[in-house]
């Protein structure tokens, strides 16, 4: 113990843990598999998204993004939750967590390192998947269309990171992997299916009398809806084609506000996970 005293926070250790997580996901081909899934769905939607109306082939970027948004709302949260739900509880069950905590690493460094490693895997898979789909699509896009598409990819990335934060929070709270799996599935159902249905139900039941005042703000309580609104309000052509997304109150639909809310959905659950894991 003749070395100098260690500082409170060591990024070197955080990055070592992050690098291990990243390598783990790369080795088990998780990154590749998810990238292929995203790319395949993006291309299928781009070419066959208009099949219902009797049109096959590349459509406008706005129409493609509209279809991709609907897909991403289901797929991205699911993949992020699957990626992170056992980040802590899985290590605990395997007996590795005690070993890691016996080392000169703080719990905060361990959790942030894990999150960054998983986030890197998710980010690369998302960017590579939707980015690969951009190659054939780019020929039919002008600059405005490209911006719409890139906004979709960026917000999909943020949506994934938000659900990854929620997954890591679940992982710190759950007592075992089975409970963590159940909680992750419940979160997915809650945010992706139940939340919107409930909100619509309240709106319809109240005939819009009371609920219409607060319903637009309630959308901010669901990162999936924030993602939807970002992409809906990003293109004039889409605003009329979405239901709840078009409810968004004036002033709250500014891109900066929506991105800030989505960023809060990344930071707050991760902060809660840190507090829980202390």
């Amino acid at each position: 113990m003749s070395r100098p005293a260690m500082s409170c926070w060591q990024w070197r250790l955080v990055m070592a843990i992050a690098a291990k997580e990243w390598r783990d996901r790369l080795r088990n081909r998780w990154v590749l598999a998810v990238a292929v899934v995203f790319a395949t769905f993006a291309l299928l939607i781009a070419y066959f998204g208009g099949a219902q109306s009797g049109v096959v082939g590349l459509r406008s970027a706005a129409a493609t993004v509209a279809s991709l948004t609907s897909l991403a709302i289901y797929l991205v949260p699911l993949i992020a939750l699957l990626l992170g739900f056992d980040a802590v509880v899985g290590e605990r069950e395997r007996g590795v967590l005690d070993l890691l905590l016996s080392l000169p690493v703080t719990r905060a460094e361990l959790l942030i390192g894990k999150y960054l490693g998983l986030a890197a895997a998710l980010s690369v898979a998302t960017l590579a998947g939707f980015g690969a789909a951009l190659v054939p699509l780019a020929r039919a896009m002008d600059v405005a269309s490209l911006v719409i598409y890139l906004r979709f990819v960026g917000s999909a990335l943020m949506l994934g990171l938000a659900f990854l934060s929620l997954a890591v929070l679940v992982s710190t709270v759950a007592r075992d992997r089975t409970r963590a799996t159940g909680a992750a599935i419940a979160l997915w159902f809650g945010f992706v299916l139940v939340f919107d249905l409930s909100l619509l139900g309240v709106l319809v039941a109240s005939a819009g009398s009371h609920a219409s005042a607060w319903a637009p703000y309630a959308l901010l309580l669901n990162p999936a809806d924030v993602f939807r609104v970002i992409n809906v309000f990003g293109a004039d052509a889409l605003r009329s084609s979405f239901g709840l997304g078009t409810l968004m109150a004036q002033g709250w639909n500014a891109p900066a506000t929506l991105y800030t809310v989505l960023a809060a959905w990344i930071v707050v659950p991760l902060g809660m996970a840190l507090w829980r894991f202390r």
């Binding site: 113990m1 070395r3 005293a5 260690m6 291990k20 783990d24 395997r94 007996g95 590795v96 005690d98 070993l99 016996s102 080392l103 000169p104 703080t106």
Partner: peptide, 17 residues
């Protein structure tokens, strides 16, 4: 935290990676 550098620990059940 500094003391931990001087400790080696082998848990009863460890799966590693």
């Amino acid at each position: 935290r500094e003391v931990r550098r001087a400790i080696g620990y082998l848990p009863e059940h460890v799966a590693l990676y």
